[in-house]
Structures are given as structure tokens and as C-alpha cells.
């Protein structure tokens, strides 16, 4: 069964390391849902978060292949791992033409942050677990999502 998996990697910050990672994944015929790379506490080491929708076996194979890249230090599939705190950041522009007060209530309930409030729409940002983000987007969907930008998921180990 295909499922969303979040893979977290520690990589050496070399020229072309991202090209190697994305190249390897497309070369093996997989699609990337999202990917983020950013410096870690050590400026020579980057953390890469990669989300793929694939079967367990394929994820295992792709993790092993990624691990083989000389610049990749560690690969962990954190999807079902309770030891990680996972967050995503989103910014969303929502139409406020109908039931504006209901919408405002939802935003408060989810503790989303109002960034702009215009006549026909509003812009909010939110940080949350993948589940909270999903629930929020489901809830505001009926109002009309005009634009959505997501950071993609990233995580930190909590043990």
C-alpha cells in the first residue's frame, strides 16, 4: 500500500548534493512530494527532509540507495517514529465572502495567525503537526482556498 513517508537525512554540504539526491530519486522512478534542505547546527552538515508517497518496500529501497550516496551521512524514515517532533508551516489565502464570522472562529480555534485581512479574503499562517495542518485545511476548504504555500514537513529528534 502506498503511504506518505517522511525521510530525514543528514548530508555533507557539498556542491551538487541536492542534485544527487533528487537525481537518484527520479532516476529510480519515484516522485517527490516535497523536499526541504537547510543548514543544521553544524554549518557543514545539512538536514534534508523528503516526503514521498510509496510502499514500505520501495521506501526501504530508496532509503538504502540514498544511504549509498557518498555525501549522505544518515537516512531515517521518521513517518511512524514517535521520537520525532514533526512540524509544517503554511500560509494560506482564504476567501471570506461567505460566513466570515465562522471562518474567523475557525482561525481562532486552530490558533492560526492572521497576517492580512482584506475585504474579500484573509491571509493566515499556521505551524503545526501534519495532522493539525490537514484538519485545518479540511476545515477551511469550504470557504474557498485561493492560494496555499507550504514549507513541507520537517522534524527534530526528541530523545
Amino acid at each position: 500500500m502506498k503511504e506518505k513517508h517522511t525521510i530525514r537525512m543528514k548530508v555533507v554540504n557539498t556542491v551538487g548534493v541536492m542534485a544527487r539526491i533528487t537525481g537518484l530519486i527520479s532516476q529510480r522512478g519515484y516522485n517527490i512530494d516535497n523536499i526541504i534542505a537547510s543548514p543544521s547546527e553544524d554549518p557543514n552538515i545539512y538536514t534534508v527532509h523528503l516526503v514521498l508517497t510509496e510502499t514500505e518496500e520501495k521506501i526501504e529501497q530508496i532509503s538504502k540507495q540514498l544511504n549509498k550516496l557518498v555525501d549522505v551521512i544518515k537516512v531515517t524514515d521518521i513517518s511512524h517514529n514517535k521520537n520525532y517532533i514533526v512540524r509544517e508551516f503554511i500560509m494560506v489565502k482564504i476567501s471570506s465572502n461567505k460566513n466570515r464570522s465562522d471562518l474567523l472562529q475557525l482561525i481562532e480555534l486552530f490558533e492560526a495567525k492572521m497576517l492580512d485581512l482584506a475585504a474579500h479574503y484573509l491571509v493566515v499562517s499556521m505551524t503545526g503537526s501534519p495532522r493539525k495542518i490537514r484538519r485545518f485545511l479540511e476545515a477551511v476548504h469550504p470557504f474557498g482556498i485561493m492560494e496555499l504555500d507550504r514549507s513541507g514537513e520537517f522534524a527534530v529528534k526528541d530523545v
Partner: peptide, 15 residues
Amino acid sequence: SGLTRPVCKHSYLVS
């Protein structure tokens, strides 16, 4: 280094 990436074990561009 881009051309060889999928067909070699590792590649370098030494600038």
C-alpha cells in the same frame, strides 16, 4: 559531473 552522476559511484568537480 552532472553527466556522470547517474552512471558513476561518485563524481567530483575540483574548482
